[in-house]
Design a protein around this nucleic acid. Structure first.
Length: 997
RNA sequence: GGUCCUGUAGCUCAAUUGGCCAGAGCAAUCGCCUUACACGCGAUAGGUUCACGGUUCGAGCCCGUGCAGGACCACCA
C-alpha cells in the first residue's frame, strides 16, 4: 500500500480526485428535511467584475471551515453560494473594455444591446469564480447557486421594493446627491471616499448693492459663486446689525442677493484651533444647489436654488439657471458656459483678480469626497432620486417611540438595526409594555471581534436616508411608472381615461400596484396622474402594465443600488418571498463571514431588510476577518501589482496549503501582512508564507506513508488498553487534549489557534515523538497489534479534526485508511464512527486526558533532549551509541525501566549501562526531568564545570526570586493558593537541583 | 474633527479573565541524506514587549501621557 503513495505530496494528483467524489456524490447538498440542527451560511456574493483574489480565498476558506465543521458535527449544514451583479462596478469595467476594444462608448449602443455585453461578461466571470471556489474546496451547495439578478432574486427585489413602497418607506425626493460627473450617476454616501487634497482658500470681495463698500467671503470653490443666492453672517457677529437688510450685488452675474443671518456661520478667530475659524471671514457665500450645508441654509431661509452645472459638471444654463442672469450679466458669463468646473474655477479667480476683487489666496489642505468608481471629486448635485427612509416610523407598525439614546424610531429600519445588537433581555424603556407594538424578534446579533459593534452602532445612530436609484443600465430596473411629460393623453375629459383609472384603483385594492401621489393631489377618489408614481408588484402583471401604457406611463429608466439586492441576500437565496422549506429551516442563518469595509454597505442592509420583511435576524453572528495587505502594509491591488492570485498558489502549493496558511493567519486583528515575492519559475506573485502550509501537508502525507507501511503488515486485533505502552497512552491523551483546544478555538472563531493546535499536535507530538517512539514496537509481533490500533485511531482522529481546514488531503488519506483498516477507534477512549467519506464522518468528541501519563512522558522528553544536547555539545558522531546510567526516585526509575528505556535508547542514541549502578569515575553528569544522567566516556571536565556554573547561576537567581516572592506577605495572602503552592514547588525543585550540582 | 486598531526575536505573528523561564513559523548558526518525510531530522543562538509615569503581591496585558503606523466615520466655507 505504501508503495502506492509517492514520497512527496502532490496536491495536483489528490485534490481533483477528492473534489470529484464530493461533487459526484452531492455531498455538499443539503435538504431542509435532513436530520440535524440547522446550520447555514450565505456567501458574501463576489462581484462578477473580476476573478477572485486572495481576500476572497481567505473569506471563503473561513466559511468552508465552519460549514465542514458543522456538517461533521451532525448539523444540517448548508452553504448558499452565489455572485453579485455589482451594478456600477461591472458596468464601468465593461464600458472600459468596449472602449478599448471597439472604440465605442456606452451611448453608442441601445440599452438592451449594451446590457447584453455586460451579461456576457457576467457569464464568463461567474463561471470563473465558481471554478475558483470549487478548486479552493468550498463545500457550497451548488444546487442553490444564486445570482443577484437571476429570476428568483429579481422576484425578491421586486416584492421587497413593492412592500417598502407601499409602506411609504421608499419615496421620490429632490435632494443634493453625491453626483459622479464621469459615470454620471448618483452615489450613496458610503460609495464616496474622502481624499486629502491640497486646495486653496480664495477670498472674494462681494460689493454691497448700495455701493457702501464690500464684504469678503472665503471659499474653496469659487466657481460655485455663480449659483450663490445669499451671503450669510452669524447673528452674533458684531458686524451683523449694521448689515441687516442690506443686499449684495453678486459679481459676474450681477444678481442681487440678500445678506442673511444664520448660526451655522463660523465666527472668524485667527487664534482658534479650528481651521475653519482661522480661515473664516465671517461671511459665507450660500450656494444651495452645490453644497449640502448651503442647501440646508437655503431651506431654512427659503432661498432660491440655482443650478449652474450640467450632469458632466460643466457650466451650463440648461439645468435650472434663470435666463435673466444672462440678460444683465457680465460678458464673462457667456464665456464661462461649457467650461468644466476646474477650468471655470480658474476663470472665475482670474476675473476676480483682474477686477481687483481677489483679496487673498491661501493654501488649504482639506478632504474632498471622491467617487469610489471614477475617483473624481463628487459634485453635490440637485436631482430627483429614490430613497429608502431609514429612520422613519414604519406606518404599518404601531408607534412605540425611539431607540433609547437616539432620535431614531424604534420601529424604523435603522431602529431595527440598532436594536439588533442590543440584548433582548434589556427592554427598551417604554417599549416593554404589552401591546406597545414594538416589533421584537428572537436572539441578538453578535459581532466578532466585539469592537466592530461600535462601528456598526455609531453608523446607525447617524444614518441618513439611503439613495437607491442609480443612473445606470446594469441592474434591477426601478419598478415604478410615472406619467411621461409628452405623452399624448388628454387627462382632462375622457371616458376611456376614467375607465383606466377605475382599473388602477381595482389593481391597487387587489395589492397588485401601489400608488404614491404627487404634491398636487386633487380629488380624493381619483388619481392625479401627472404627479403619481405607480409601483407594479409583478413584472408578469400584463393588465397593470397595459393599463399604464395606455395612460401614457413609462417605467423609470434608473436601476437600483446594487446593495438593494445584496441586502436581500439571506432571504432571496432561500426563495423569499415564498415561505420555502429552505427559508423556514435556514433563515436566520448562523454566521456571516465578511470584511470590515462592508459592515455599513451590506451587513446593515441585510439586518434592516430581514427584520422588516421577516421579523427575524438575517444571521446570529458576524465574523469580521482581517484584510490581507502586502509586506509593506499596502492593500493588494491590480494597480500596485502586489496581488496574489489564489489559483497561482493552488498550482504551486496546493489548495490545502493555501487554506492552512490563511487559517493560521486569521487572528482577531484588523490587518494581516503577507510579504509578496515573485516566483522566479512561474513569474507569478507568491508569498513564502504558503510554504508552511505546503510543508505541513507534506508532513501529513509522509506520516501517513509511515503508518500505512506498518498497518498493512500488522494483523488487526481487539483493542486492549492494558497492553498499551506509555507512548500509546500519551498520544491518546494528547489527541484528546488537542480536540478540546481545537474545538474551543473554532467555537470562538480563533482560526489561528485551531490551526496551531492541529499543527503542534500532528507535527510536534505525533510525528516528532510518537512515530519515532513506536518504531521498535511496530516491529515486535507481541506489541505491534495494540500500537497499530492506537496509531490508526489517532491518525483517523487527526484527519477528522483537520478536515475542515485541509479537506482534500485528509479526505484522500481517509479513503486509504478505510481500505486498509476499516475498523478503527478505541472504545471509551477515542470513538470513531465509521463513514465512507470523511466529509460527513463524525467530528471527534471531547475525550479523556491523562495528566500523570503526560507528566511522565514530559520527563522522558526532557531526558532525551538533555542527552541529545550533550551529544551535540561534545560533537559525538551521530551513529555512535553512548553508554548512560540514570539515577532518580523509585517511581521514575520504575517508569523508565518498564516503559521508557527503549525509547530513550532509540531517540537519544544511547544504551543503558548493563552493569550495576556503581558510577565510574570518568563520567559526565547532567540533570534533566528530575533525573541524574551519567554518560560514560564524554569527559570534558571544563565544559561540564562551565555548564554547571551557568546552571547554578540560573538556579540561584531563580531561587532568590522565588524566595522573595514567598517572603512577601501580601503575595502569600492575596495571590490564589494554587499559585502560592506552585511557587513553593518550584522553589523546592530548584533547591533540590542546586543541591545535586 | 470623532471613533477604533496596531506597535513583542532580523521578518510574519502568538501569549485565555493580569499569574510557571514571553512562544511558533521563516531567516541565521552547527551537525546529520538515521528505511515516512531534505517540503526533512537533531541542536543552538536571538527579546529593555515603542517611551515615560501610574495601579497591583505581580503588568506584554489594566490606567494616563507621549511617539510611530494604520483603518473607519464626518456637511468640501
Amino acid at each position: 500500500m505504501s508503495s502506492e503513495l509517492p514520497k512527496a505530496y502532490d496536491p495536483a494528483s489528490v485534490e481533483p480526485a477528492a473534489d470529484q467524489v464530493w461533487l459526484d456524490e452531492k455531498l455538499f447538498h443539503a435538504e431542509p428535511s435532513n436530520p440535524g440542527a440547522p446550520y447555514s451560511i450565505v456567501i458574501p456574493p463576489p462581484n462578477v467584475t473580476a476573478a477572485l483574489h486572495l481576500g476572497h480565498a481567505l473569506n471563503n476558506t473561513l466559511q468552508d471551515i465552519l460549514t465542514r465543521w458543522h456538517r461533521m458535527k451532525g448539523d444540517n449544514a448548508c452553504w448558499f453560494p452565489g455572485t453579485d451583479h455589482a451594478g456600477i462596478a461591472t458596468q464601468t469595467v465593461v464600458e472600459k473594455r468596449v472602449l478599448a476594444e471597439e472604440g465605442k462608448r456606452r451611448t453608442d449602443f441601445q440599452r438592451d444591446e449594451f446590457v447584453k455585453k455586460i451579461q456576457a461578461w457576467k457569464d464568463e466571470y461567474e463561471q470563473r469564480i465558481t471554478d475558483q471556489l470549487k478548486r479552493m474546496g468550498c463545500s457550497c451547495d451548488w444546487d442553490r447557486q444564486a445570482f443577484t439578478m437571476d429570476e428568483t432574486r429579481a422576484k425578491a427585489v421586486r416584492e421587497a421594493f413593492f412592500r417598502l413602497f407601499e409602506d411609504g418607506l421608499i419615496y421620490r425626493g429632490k435632494r443634493l446627491v453625491n453626483w459622479d460627473p464621469v459615470t454620471q450617476t448618483a452615489l450613496a454616501d458610503d460609495e464616496v471616499e474622502m481624499e486629502e487634497l491640497d486646495g486653496h482658500f480664495y477670498y472674494l470681495q462681494y460689493p454691497l448693492e448700495d455701493g457702501s463698500g464690500h464684504i469678503t467671503v472665503a471659499t474653496t470653490r469659487p466657481e460655485t459663486m455663480l449659483g450663490d443666492t445669499a451671503v450669510a453672517i452669524n447673528p452674533k457677529d458684531p458686524r451683523a446689525a449694521a448689515l441687516r437688510g442690506k443686499k449684495i450685488l453678486l459679481p459676474i452675474v450681477n444678481r442681487v442677493i440678500p445678506i442673511i443671518e444664520d448660526d451655522y456661520v463660523v465666527l472668524p478667530d485667527p487664534n482658534s484651533d479650528d481651521a475653519k475659524a482661522q480661515f473664516a471671514t465671517g461671511f459665507l457665500k450660500v450656494t444651495p444647489a452645490h453644497d449640502p450645508n448651503d442647501y440646508e441654509i437655503g431651506r431654512r431661509h427659503d432661498l432660491p436654488i440655482i443650478n449652474v452645472f450640467s450632469p458632466t459638471a460643466t457650466i451650463s444654463k440648461e439645468h435650472g439657471w434663470p435666463g435673466e442672469d444672462f440678460a444683465r450679466g457680465d460678458e464673462t458669463l457667456q464665456n464661462l458656459l461649457g467650461m468644466d468646473r476646474f477650468e471655470a474655477r480658474r476663470a472665475v479667480v482670474d476675473w476676480f483678480r483682474s477686477e481687483k476683487l481677489l483679496e487673498d489666496v491661501k493654501p488649504y489642505k482639506h478632504s474632498v469626497g471622491h467617487s469610489y468608481r471614477s475617483h473624481v471629486p463628487i459634485e453635490p448635485y440637485l436631482s430627483d432620486q429614490w430613497y429608502v427612509a431609514t429612520t422613519k416610523q414604519i406606518a404599518s407598525m404601531a408607534d412605540t417611540g425611539t431607540v433609547s439614546g437616539t432620535a431614531i424610531a424604534r420601529n424604523s429600519l435603522a431602529g431595527f438595526a440598532l436594536r439588533a445588537t442590543r440584548s433582548p433581555s434589556v427592554p427598551e424603556p417604554g417599549g416593554a409594555a404589552a401591546g406597545s407594538g414594538a416589533q421584537s424578534w428572537e436572539g441578538q446579533l453578535k459581532i466578532i471581534p466585539e469592537r466592530y459593534t461600535k462601528t456598526y452602532e455609531t453608523w446607525h445612530e447617524n444614518i441618513r436616508d439611503w439613495c437607491i436609484s442609480r443612473q445606470l443600465w446594469w441592474g434591477h430596473r426601478i419598478p415604478v411608472w410615472s406619467f411621461k411629460e409628452d405623452a399624448a393623453v388628454d387627462t382632462k375629459q375622457d371616458d376611456h381615461l376614467r375607465d383606466l383609472i377605475e382599473v388602477l384603483i381595482k389593481l391597487q385594492r387587489e395589492g397588485r400596484i401601489a400608488m404614491q401621489h404627487g404634491p398636487r393631489k386633487t380629488e380624493a377618489s381619483a388619481v392625479d396622474l401627472q404627479h403619481s408614481f405607480i409601483c407594479v408588484r409583478s413584472d408578469d402583471d400584463k393588465e397593470a402594465l397595459h393599463t399604464l401604457e395606455q395612460l401614457g406611463f413609462t417605467q423609470d429608466p434608473d436601476v437600483l443600488d446594487t446593495w438593494f439586492s445584496s441586502g436581500l441576500w439571506p432571504l432571496s437565496t432561500m426563495g423569499w418571498p415564498d415561505e420555502t422549506p429552505a427559508l423556514q429551516k435556514w433563515n436566520p442563518t448562523n454566521t456571516l463571514c465578511t470584511a470590515r469595509e462592508i459592515i455599513t454597505l451590506w451587513v446593515s442592509r441585510m439586518v434592516m431588510f430581514n427584520l422588516y420583511f421577516r421579523n427575524a435576524l438575517p444571521f446570529n453572528e458576524v465574523f469580521i476577518h482581517a484584510m490581507i495587505q502586502d509586506g509593506e502594509g499596502r492593500k493588494m491591488s491590480k494597480s500596485l501589482g502586489n496581488g496574489v492570485d489564489p489559483l497561482d498558489i493552488i498550482q504551486s502549493h496546493g489548495s490545502d496549503a493555501m487554506r492552512f496558511t490563511l487559517c493560521a493567519m486569521t487572528t482577531h486583528t484588523q490587518d494581516v501582512r503577507m510579504p509578496v515575492e515573485r516566483d522566479s519559475r512561474t513569474g507569478k506573485n507568491t508569498s513564502p508564507k504558503f510554504d508552511n502550509g505546503r510543508n505541513f501537508c507534506n508532513k501529513i502525507w509522509n506520516a501517513t506513508r509511515f503508518a500505512m507501511m506498518h498497518l498493512s503488515s500488522v494483523p488487526a486485533e481487539g483493542v486492549d488498553e492494558t497492553k498499551w505502552s506509555l507512548a500509546d497512552r500519551w498520544i491518546v491523551s494528547r489527541f484528546n487534549r488537542t480536540v478540546a483546544d481545537a474545538t474551543a478555538a473554532l467555537q470562538s472563531f480563533r482560526y489561528d489557534a485551531y490551526a496551531k493546535s492541529c499543527y503542534d499536535f500532528f507535527w510536534g507530538d505525533l510525528c516528532d515523538w510518537y512515530l519515532e517512539a513506536i518504531k521498535p514496537a511496530m516491529k515486535d509481533p507481541h506489541r505491534a497489534g495494540q500500537t497499530a490500533n492506537v496509531l490508526a485511531a489517532v491518525l483517523d482522529g487527526s484527519l477528522r479534526l483537520m478536515h475542515p481546514m485541509i479537506p482534500f488531503i485528509t479526505e484522500f488519506i481517509y479513503w486509504r485508511l478505510n481500505d486498509l483498516r476499516p475498523q478503527r477507534g478505541l472504545p471509551g477512549k477515542l470513538e470513531l464512527a465509521a463513514s465512507k467519506r470523511l466529509i460527513n464522518a463524525h467530528f471527534p468528541e471531547l475525550g479523556e486526558t491523562s495528566d500523570p501519563v503526560e507528566k511522565s512522558f514530559a520527563q522522558i522528553q526532557e531526558v532525551i533532549v538533555a542527552l541529545r544536547n550533550l551529544r551535540n555539545q561534545h560533537k559525538v558522531e551521530p551513529k555512535r551509541i553512548i553508554d548512560i546510567a540514570i539515577m532518580t526516585n523509585p517511581e521514575t526509575a520504575w517508569m523508565i525501566e518498564y516503559d521508557a528505556k527503549e525509547m530513550i535508547e532509540l531517540l537519544a542514541g544511547c544504551k543503558f549501562d548493563a552493569g550495576d549502578r556503581n558510577i565510574p569515575a570518568d563520567v559526565t553528569r547532567v540533570l534533566a526531568g528530575g533525573c541524574e544522567i551519567y554518560i560514560e566516556g564524554l569527559v570534558d571536565k571544563a565544559a561540564e564545570e562551565q555548564r554547571n556554573t551557568k546552571r547554578r547561576e540560573e538556579l540561584n537567581k531563580q531561587i532568590s526570586a522565588l524566595r522573595g516572592r514567598l517572603s512577601n506577605e501580601s503575595y502569600t495572602k492575596k495571590a490564589p493558593p494554587h499559585l502560592v503552592k506552585q511557587t513553593q514547588d518550584q522553589l523546592k525543585e530548584a533547591e533540590e537541583e542546586l543541591a545535586k550540582l
